[in-house]
Amino acid sequence: MSQSENWVQQLPQNIIIGLEQGSVYSLIALGYTLVYGVLQLINFAHSEVFMAGGFGSYLVVNGIVGHRHMTGVMVPLTVLCGVLSGALTGAAIAWLLEKVAYKTLRRSGAPKLAFLISAIGASLFLSNLAGKLFNRLPNNAFPTYFDINHQLFKIGNAKVTLIEVIIVGSAVVMMIFLDRLVNRTKLGRGIRAVAEDAPTAALMGIDIDKTISRTFVIGGALAGAAGFMFGTAFGVSNLMGFTPGVKAFAAAVLGGIGNIRGAMIGGLILGQAEVLIAALPFVGAQWNDVISFVVLVLILLVRPTGILGERLGRAA
């Protein structure tokens, strides 16, 4: 009995942790879902884009901060720099990835699995190249230019730390930005049109190649930014992409792959489910990965196309 009371007591704190994890999952999942929307392909190398964002932002932030200790207005500025550099690196890598691993295959009309395997090849290549260039240590901590665990405020008895606010806050900002982008801009209309019916979109004068390329760039930027956040909180390594990548993929499917809002919701649900269920007295943190997949399977059995259903075009 006392254990379950404990669970209830920790609930607010866990919800906040779940929100933090879920935001990262959502940001990565958006990349999966965007690419799936326009190409109907799972971009297996997306987790490496996330990793690249982590390393890119690490280099920039390390260059700015060095061994100094930042204060005042420099802290949010550095965070901004980190997000931007992570997003830029992610976008660049995603753009290259599309050019090398996808575009050539699309032109030769290869079977679907060939794309999957080329992405797997690219993923192996990128993560090991990063390992060679930087190092293969399991964890490279970001320079500590601010106290990431600094307690900002309390909700009930739940502590809210600075890093949590940064992660959730920037995730929300980026998701709103993406939602606007997809629903309000010309580029977004193009993406939706290609997702709905690529041949017709081409007939309407939309450059499919460019649209696909830009979709990769957008997804890559989000994942890269997520890489910065994840890196600040947990450190970067050349294999950091794998587990969050798989979870985010699960989140994208959970929400209905190809569906933008589905990816956001899927990520958040998965984050919450993991933290909350693992905190149950008879479970434990070692079951984390099992939980996310059991949740996924259960939901898919009830709703075979995910919570919100697929179709990027109709997400709006």
Partner: peptide, 21 residues
């Protein structure tokens, strides 16, 4: 030793690009 995965990844990628079948 540690670079082997990288080369294999590059090979798989190249194979799919130049000979997708």
């Amino acid at each position: 030793q540690d670079d082997r995965q990288m080369w294999i990844g590059a090979l798989v990628l190249a194979m799919m690009i130049f000979r997708p079948a």
